[in-house]
Nucleic acid binder design. Structure first.
Length: 631
RNA sequence: GCGCUCGUAGCUCAGCUGGAUAGAGCGCCGGACUUCGAAUCCGUAGGUCGCAGGUUCGAAUCCUGCCGGGCGCACCA
């Protein structure tokens, strides 16, 4: 049966489109959350906790008074929430849940608690507000701002980082390209996720090792080799001026054409694979040459995309691995052998059928290789956990892989995680190589870079920006990474080319622009007459509603980092960034900073702006947005 | 068929360990640049949160069923 190119064997970035996560990965994700999370509290959480403890204690004694006996232990724990609108306060305690037990209407409970707490001599700074069935607290933001300022100055680039995963070694596998064609949009989501999650885990204290598993062998690789042999006429990247990966990709496509004319094409490719496995010098030489072309091309693409790895693994070295593991399992009795010699595992325990682990001729399969590769990697670098960034169509594969490793008795098997992500579709549907709708990674970056350069020229900012190309490239990366990371990983997403090239609205360049504006303003401040150095920072002056919101948002950044780390989800950071930027943008638009009324006010607002810039930069680093002082 | 997964405004997405009128961006319409960068800001219109039940004082959020989309169910990778 004819196999369309789009369904040909694909690498781990998935076919041209990729999919979505499963209950399984959810379970793993949950179980994988580091137990230390929760011990580290940021300032905002501290304030919330203080108030919660206080309100909870008062609620208990109030309940005792009303009911006439001790019932605190029967009450549901107090919920802490954030009011939907700033004017309602900063912390909210809904009291619905206590109406039944106390036989008192929630608004009255709220009012009574307010009176009690206000009667206390010793209570945290802040103001209590009544809002129907809610008891709300308007926190002491000035104190928060003072703490925040001190901490951001002290920690700088490290502000927001935590030690949740300190002392743990995390290996993360991503990208995993085939060496028969260039990178496309599907890889880009994979690469963005891999890079971002790596940065996020580092910010959570982990020792991270990024690895790439290059799929450089197999019948699909032989296809491009064969087509090149037949139609290549000795063409090289140098002679043709075509980037190596694109040149090899050209022959992969050429094979597909030829295959339609010559029904023996696939057979010939298989024969070539056999020769490769036998070590045929001529085949190996061609394989080496073409692989080098592709790998050189891919290296350039990675550089262009800001992607890098600490180690490369090649399937040509690993494809035979795993056989020993399967035989070990057979001895242990966790696997069984069929009459024909093939080895299987029974998956009834995880409510699946059964899976073959070794062919009847004793050779390895995809699963076998992955078993061996995991063990080999743990020997290379004894990780505490290993994350596979692989499209969700392989959910089943990883579910089985992790189960098998656990059955083999590896203690680290329970810390394997499949970071499963959904496919990237185009507005018209899936990308299909046959229909030429594949979005090429190099083209996309180049196109975005050139559009950004046009924009810089249109705004006549060339001289201020200096290196237009470098700046345009940084803008392109921001646009791409942000676009790809703002969607929750598990979901399929639509890549709209027209939208992706927009630099306005909820985009990476918008965020960069906020950074550039603050940076520009701070440069002006530095040039202003001296004298501000002696003006003390008075956080009490930051009492506008927008300022309170900004301060709370800044204080919430460490929480976002911890959550993104616990859930392997960069979209938490992108959402945070947009929220912070929008707050800043509005405040900046409505208020003067450098020309504020008094030196003390200038100082306070400059300080707030500087804090925003620092946090923006820290968050940028986690989601692949280059910081630009000017753009 | 079985399994997994997704279904929120015209489009792209947030919100989902249950809570106060469901939020953004794009697009539409209308405002704001002699003033710290307008790649900006503000406003109007636009929603039976796929449908139906259930649990609950309270459901976009949890449970069940159904409908619709995607993916997977190879001795391929």
């Amino acid at each position: 049966m004819e196999q369309p190119m789009s369904q040909a064997i694909e690498n781990r970035a998935g076919p041209l489109a990729m999919w979505t996560s499963s209950y399984y990965s959810w379970v793993l994700r949950k179980s994988f959350i580091n137990p230390h999370i929760g011990k580290v509290r940021n300032m905002l959480q501290k304030v919330r906790q203080q108030w919660k403890d206080l309100v909870e204690a008062q609620l208990a004694s109030y309940a005792k008074e009303v009911v006439g006996e001790e019932i605190a232990s029967t009450l549901v724990p107090l919920a802490v929430q954030t009011p939907p609108k700033p004017e309602l306060g900063d912390i909210a305690f809904p009291l619905f849940a206590y109406a039944k037990a106390l036989k008192v209407a929630p608004p009255k409970i709220a009012a009574d608690l307010k009176t009690r707490i206000e009667g206390l001599a010793d209570r945290p700074a802040g103001e209590l507000l009544l809002a129907g069935p809610y008891l709300n607290v308007k926190a002491d933001i000035a104190a928060l701002a003072a703490d925040l300022s001190a901490e951001i100055h002290e920690k700088g680039d490290a502000f927001g980082s935590n030690t949740n995963r300190a002392g743990t070694k995390v290996m993360i596998e991503f990208s995993c390209p085939n060496t028969n064609k260039p990178l496309h949009l599907g890889h880009m989501r994979n690469d963005s996720l891999g890079e971002s999650v790596s940065a996020i885990l580092k910010a959570n204290g982990a020792d991270v090792r990024k690895v790439n598993l290059v799929n450089n062998r197999g019948v699909h690789i032989c296809k491009s080799m064969l087509a090149y042999q037949k139609f290549g006429n000795g063409e090289t990247p140098e002679s043709s001026g075509i980037k190596g990966d694109h040149l090899v990709g050209k022959y992969y496509v050429r094979f597909a054409q030829w295959e339609k004319e010559d029904p023996t094409a696939t057979e010939q490719a298989q024969a070539m694979l056999k020769k490769w496995e036998e070590g045929d010098p001529e085949v190996l030489a061609l394989w080496n040459t073409m692989n080098t072309w592709t790998l050189d091309g891919l290296a350039e693409s990675y550089r262009k995309m800001g992607v890098s790895f600490d180690a490369y693994y090649y399937e040509s070295n690993t494809y035979k691995l795993g056989k020993d593991e399967v035989l070990k399992g057979l001895e242990k009795g966790v696997f069984y052998r069929e009459a024909d010699g093939s080895v299987w595992i029974d998956l009834a325990e995880i409510k699946l059928d059964r899976k073959v682990l070794l062919r009847k001729d004793g050779t390895s399969l995809y699963m076998t290789q992955d078993l061996g590769t995991a063990v080999a990697r743990h020997n290379d670098w004894p990780f505490d956990s290993l994350i596979y960034v692989v499209a969700s169509e392989q959910n089943y594969h990883f579910k089985v892989l992790f189960y098998v490793l656990e059955k083999l008795g590896y203690s680290w098997a329970k810390n394997l995680h499949h970071l499963s992500y959904g496919m990237v579709n185009l507005p018209d549907g899936k990308m299909k190589s046959r229909e030429g709708t594949v979005v090429d990674a190099d083209d996309l970056v180049d196109q975005l870079t050139s559009l950004a350069a046009d924009e810089i020229r249109a705004k006549e900012r060339e001289s201020e920006v200096g290196d237009v190309d470098a700046t345009a490239h940084a803008i392109a990366l921001a646009a791409l990474n942000y676009y790809l990371l703002q969607v929750s990983p598990t979901k399929d997403m639509v890549f709209n080319p027209a939208e992706s090239i927009s630099f306005n609205g909820n985009t990476g360049p918008y965020l960069q622009y906020m950074g550039a504006r603050i940076s520009s303003m701070l440069r002006k401040y530095a040039e202003m007459e001296t004298g501000y150095a002696s003006v003390p920072f008075d956080p009490a002056l930051l009492d506008l509603e927008d300022e309170r919101e900004l301060i709370k948002s800044l204080a919430a950044y460490p929480e976002a980092v911890a959550k993104a780390g616990a859930e392997y989800d960069p979209s938490i950071i992108t959402a945070y960034l947009y929220d912070l930027s929008r707050l800043f943008s509005r405040w900046y638009h409505d208020n003067q900073i450098l020309k504020a009324g008094t030196p003390a006010l200038v100082k306070a607002r400059v300080e707030l702006s500087a804090m925003v810039l620092q946090v923006l930069r820290n968050a940028f680093a986690l989601v692949g947005i280059p910081y630009l002082p000017t753009m």
